[in-house]
Design a binder for these strands. Structure first.
Length: 282
RNA sequence: ACUCGUUUUGCC
């Protein structure tokens, strides 16, 4: 059983879904083993992640007959996929099913549901869900749950609520991390508050949450988009000076910025630099 | 213990 689990896990990591699926079938059919809960969960997660929700769902509903009760992790994988695919009603239905079978949501469920509702444009419901869960469920929220909510508020352009939650999470004992700050920077940039975003960036430099590549990418993209190409370039160079290596996304951004500004010669220079860093231009 | 969740670019 453990050998099979290890093998299935390895196949999934290597992206060889069908082989993993085969291996699972072989395990149950010919070898006569009973997969354990993590084995089921690994497979459910990879099936839903690859768009095979129906197969994942069959596995979920069928496992109890095999004597393995699904847990909250099994359900979370499906919630996540359904939410990302925009099937919010199915998420609701399945969530009710889960509660009915006596399984309680955890913090991962919370962030998945918040993201799912937010993506569907139902930010208020997401916000209520979070408050409700904090009050009634006894689930200990972590920074990721708050970040999910911050992210959805930011994407919806609700800067006021975003700032408020940023304060509140600290009071709730969850210090904002780099991701929280990056969400804030992104939201301010997209809300045309570039200067405010830049101030947050400066705050970060003196705080515990030092800006990372994502922070810089955000600013470079936004300044570039606003036509401030020189400024975008400056931030790009500053990133390197601050000891961070631009990633693939950084290069895509800076090349696009310069391309749109008609500075194709500079764009080519960057591409050359990129090759020297053994990155593949796309 | 192992398995699930959060941030940035690339439509035209």
């Amino acid at each position: 059983t453990y050998t099979y689990r290890f093998l299935i896990g390895a196949l999934v990591k290597a992206g060889r879904i069908d082989e993993a699926s085969e291996c699972f079938k072989e395990m149950t059919a010919s070898a006569g083993f009973t997969p354990d809960l993590p084995t089921y969960n690994i497979l459910i997660d990879c099936l839903s992640g690859n768009g095979k929700v129906n197969e994942a769902y069959d596995l979920l509903t069928g496992m109890a007959d095999k004597g393995v009760e699904p847990d909250v992790v099994s359900y979370n994988s499906l919630f996540d996929f359904l939410g990302k695919a925009g099937h919010i009603d199915d998420v609701h239905k399945l969530y009710k099913e889960m509660l009915a079978s006596g399984i309680s949501p955890n913090k991962v469920t919370c962030s998945i549901l918040i993201e799912a509702l937010g993506r569907a444009g139902r930010v208020d419901e997401a916000s209520n869900l979070l408050l409700d869960m904090i009050k009634t469920s006894g689930v200990k929220m972590d920074v990721i749950v708050y970040n999910s909510m911050l992210n959805r508020l930011g994407k919806a352009g609700r800067l006021g609520q975003l700032r408020r939650l940023f304060e509140e999470m600290t009071q709730a004992g969850q210090q904002p991390d780099v991701v929280s700050y990056n969400i804030m920077v992104d939201a301010l940039c997209k809300g045309d508050e570039l200067q405010a975003a830049y101030r947050v960036f400066l705050d970060m430099k003196t705080s515990r949450c030092v800006p990372d590549v994502v922070t810089y990418n955000n600013l470079i993209h936004s300044f570039g988009k606003a036509g401030k190409v020189a400024r975008a370039n400056k931030i790009f160079r500053r990133m390197i000076r601050d000891g961070l290596s631009p990633d693939q996304i950084s290069y895509n951004i800076i090349v696009n910025v310069m391309g749109k500004a008609g500075k194709s010669d500079q764009a080519l220079t960057v591409l050359k630099d990129m090759k020297e860093r053994r990155m593949i231009p796309d």
